[in-house]
Design a protein around this nucleic acid. Structure first.
Lengths: 152, 152
DNA sequence: CCGAATCCCAAAAGATACTG
DNA sequence: CAGTATCTTTTGGGATTCGG
């Protein structure tokens, strides 16, 4: 399988590329005299990738995409997540407007978490990425075997 | 802006959802008596998300999508990445078959990194995700302001 | 039942110095 | 130039305890 240089010129469109420039915070870090805030707030990609990349957020979003869940039900469904991380993850998702939190002042109280419209929209490109990942998995494993074989 | 429950039933297709089930390694962890390998190898999603989620891989892939780069050029382009992390990230990307590494035994030696066909293919769904992130950024920031305002 | 607060460990990643 | 080796700092995340 002799691999030639892929010469397709462009993969990313202009928007994506520009967005990724912002992904690196170097420029603002260099220009800021006192670096007021490492402005995570100004970078859309870091925002979204921070959620996609962490261990639990995606799993929570997917679970909620099936139906709204209460805290404990959510924990059981996800399985091996601690209350601490579940709370923490939910707070971040709620803060970003991807998940809604509604308290029912019953006794004992119950809290219901659900996806917002924004949260559902987020899952669309994420699902596309996962589909690609599923399809490319064999290629990746093959590449990995090759690599590990020739250079242990 | 009163937000009602989003009631669109399905966001993820079957493949994506099934794939995400595997994302959690709980089941295998529970069933394995001695847990031989936490089989990262058998989970396509963890594989790909591990790359997408970390700080540098995406930036490297995008930089390489413009043209092949040598090691130092790549480091300068990315900006604030250390040689250590650049090496480490490149090794993972190479191992997964997303990036190729070609050594020219000149003196001093030079090494050229480039995207493989698989690497370029990966950028397609990634770009879609980034586009969504760029579009949703305003909504996310707005949600964040609201959240921080009402519950400092 | 839902969560906040604290402690503590292990992994990730930056800084620095050295090598073929 | 293109890394490797080592050290230190930072972060993520589990366990436990407490409160509303």
């Amino acid at each position: 399988m002799t691999r030639e240089h892929p010469s397709n010129p462009v993969v990313l469109d202009a928007t994506a590329r520009q967005v990724l420039q912002v992904f690196s915070e170097k420029s603002t870090a260099l220009f800021a005299p006192e670096a007021p805030v490492p402005d995570m707030d100004n970078c859309p990609v870091r925002d979204v990738l921070a959620r996609v990349g962490d261990k639990w957020s995606l799993l929570i979003l997917v679970t909620l995409s099936q139906k709204p869940h209460r805290f404990s039900a959510l924990q059981r469904q996800v399985g091996d997540i601690s209350k601490r991380m579940l709370t923490q993850s939910l707070r971040m998702l709620e803060r970003d407007g991807l998940v809604s939190r509604q308290v029912f002042p019953t006794k004992p109280p119950s809290v219901e978490y659900a996806l917002t419209a924004l949260g559902e929209a987020a899952l669309v490109p994420v699902a596309a990425l996962l589909d690609w990942a599923a399809g490319a998995h064999d290629d990746i494993r093959a590449a990995r075997r090759r690599y590990d074989a020739e250079a242990g």
